[in-house]
Design a protein around this nucleic acid. Structure first.
Lengths: 205, 205
DNA sequence: ACATTCGGTGAACATTTGTACACTCAGAGT
DNA sequence: ACTCTGAGTGTACAAATGTTCACCGAATGT
């Protein structure tokens, strides 16, 4: 026995999952409404009961994907800041979440560059918000009080860029643990390099 | 008066340009053979005289795009290494080339994440080669003699990642000089931060 | 001068696409 | 009990897709 809203939500989920899966080969822009419908097991026209278009579907997926990203961010904040192993912990959490939310991360990585303009813009905006949050987090770290707000934003941007690249590399590593381990180790080293740079910032020209 | 090979080459170019332009809205994966043909002004079947498929076209575009990237790399190498303003010069050259080869850079940025798997792989490979070249360049800089080859690769990867992100940001800035200027300034600062980190590397834990 | 090569043509095809429209029929509100 | 709402159905159609095939005609090699 199923209530009406339950059933609708279930179908909606099925559509989202189908789109996630189908877009994995290339792009959401290359996914047709009919493909999604077939995969879900509904008739094409029923799609419109849930989304106005495939693009609207894409925007919903962006929301969903970044919601899981925020969960990750919360996890990272969860620990003692100013801890020595903050780098290791952050990278580990990132890796775990990429494994956990593989489809979502892959979706963002793909649609960030390709994908309908609106979707692209939405992703860009979310990443920017992300950077801002990281910047305020960094401001709470000891030793950053001599930093200008702009430099903090610049640093946050660099870190986010590196982490996005790391996530993409992990996705590309697919099921090769050795490659992945190398990627993770690289990310840790890079973060440390950046931190060394940060700590010595403004002490030289 | 046109020789036969000339005419063929001209049509080939027209196809490449059309694909570059059409794929700018979303992705090459979403571009149909017929769209390309129509844009070029040839009949769909004539397309096959030049490429086996749209994917093959994509691979050709990857080659072309990276050829122009190598030109840029050569320009950067052209100057006195170990120069103090090496950062400024490199960033300036990057910006110029992004403007000059806008379509190619945009193509790579898009198809790197989306696009047919083969195209993705080709781009990934080229970027890796790029990293390697940068690593050997870095090895020639003074002060890097205490670095391990692995750390050099890691550093090169970080720099390339940041530069790719910078190029993407410049493309996203479109025709807004203020945003672009900010982006460029950010890239310079980031490179300096990374260099500060690099110079102090191994001198701390 | 003549035969050949080959880039481009044009018709034809089976599929797939997005969307419109009228419909059913079970759960929800009264 | 009775109506109403709305998710999902089924049919239909014009448009666009990739690929095939036979064909043309001008530049090319001999």
């Amino acid at each position: 026995m199923t209530t009406r809203v339950e059933q609708k939500e279930r179908t909606r989920r099925a559509i989202l999952d189908a789109a996630l899966e189908l877009s994995a080969e290339s792009t959401l822009a290359a996914v047709s409404l009919r493909q999604v419908a077939k995969q879900v097991g509904i008739v094409p026209t029923a799609f419109y009961r849930h989304f106005d278009s495939v693009e609207a579907l894409g925007l919903a997926l962006v929301d969903e994907s970044f919601a899981s990203l925020r969960t990750m961010m919360r996890d990272i904040r969860q620990g003692d800041p100013a801890l020595a192993d903050i780098v290791d912990r952050s990278v580990t959490i990132l890796v775990d979440h990429v494994h956990d939310q593989r489809a979502h991360f892959a979706f963002i990585a793909r649609e960030r560059g390709a994908g309908p303009p609106e979707v692209r813009a939405a992703i860009r905006h979310q990443i920017e918000l992300f950077e801002r949050e990281l910047a305020t987090d960094l401001a709470r770290l000891p030793g950053t009080d001599v930093w200008s707000p702009e430099d903090l934003r610049v640093l946050a941007n660099l870190i986010v860029t590196a982490m996005v690249a790391t996530a993409e590399a992990i996705l590309a590593a697919e099921r090769r643990p050795d490659v992945e381990k190398e990627t993770v180790e690289r990310a840790r080293t890079q973060l440390r390099m950046v931190l060394v740079g940060a700590l010595n910032w403004r002490s030289q020209p």
